[in-house]
Simulated scan of single mutants.
Amino acid sequence: MVVFRDKAGRDIRIEVDGDCAYAYHDGKKVGDLITTGRREIDERSPDIPAEITGWDVDPAYRRAGIATEMVSQLVDEIGTLLPGKRDRGIGGENALTDDGLHITLKCQELGLIYPFPDDVDPCSERI
Rank of each mutant, 00 (worst) to 15 (best):
L74C: 04
G92L: 11
W55L: 15
P83M: 07
A60T: 13
L101M: 14
L96C: 10
V120F: 00
G111S: 05
D56M: 13
T104E: 08
G92P: 11
A95M: 03
Y114H: 09
S72W: 02
T104F: 02
Y61Q: 11
V120Y: 02
S72D: 03
M70Y: 02
N94R: 12
L101H: 08
A60D: 14
D118I: 12
P115C: 03
I78P: 02
G91E: 13
D99E: 12
H102P: 02
R86V: 05
G91D: 13
G84I: 07
Y114W: 04
L110D: 00
A95D: 05
E69Y: 04
R86Q: 06
D98S: 07
D56I: 09
I90A: 15
V57E: 12
R63L: 14
G91F: 08
I66S: 08
V57T: 14
I78Q: 00
R88V: 13
I90C: 09
L81V: 14
G79F: 01
L110W: 01
P117H: 05
D87F: 03
A95K: 05
T53H: 04
T80P: 08
D99Q: 14
V57S: 05
L81P: 10
T104D: 10
R62D: 06
I66Y: 06
E77C: 05
L74K: 06
G91C: 15
L112C: 07
Y61N: 10
T68I: 10
I90G: 09
V71G: 01
I66W: 03
V57L: 12
I113K: 01
D76C: 06
I78K: 00
L81C: 05
T53P: 11
D56P: 03
P59N: 12
G100L: 08
G100R: 11
I103E: 14
P59I: 10
E77N: 09
G111T: 10
Q108C: 10
L81A: 06
G84D: 09
G89N: 11
T104K: 08
H102D: 12
D99P: 15
G54H: 13
G65M: 11
P83D: 08
I52F: 04
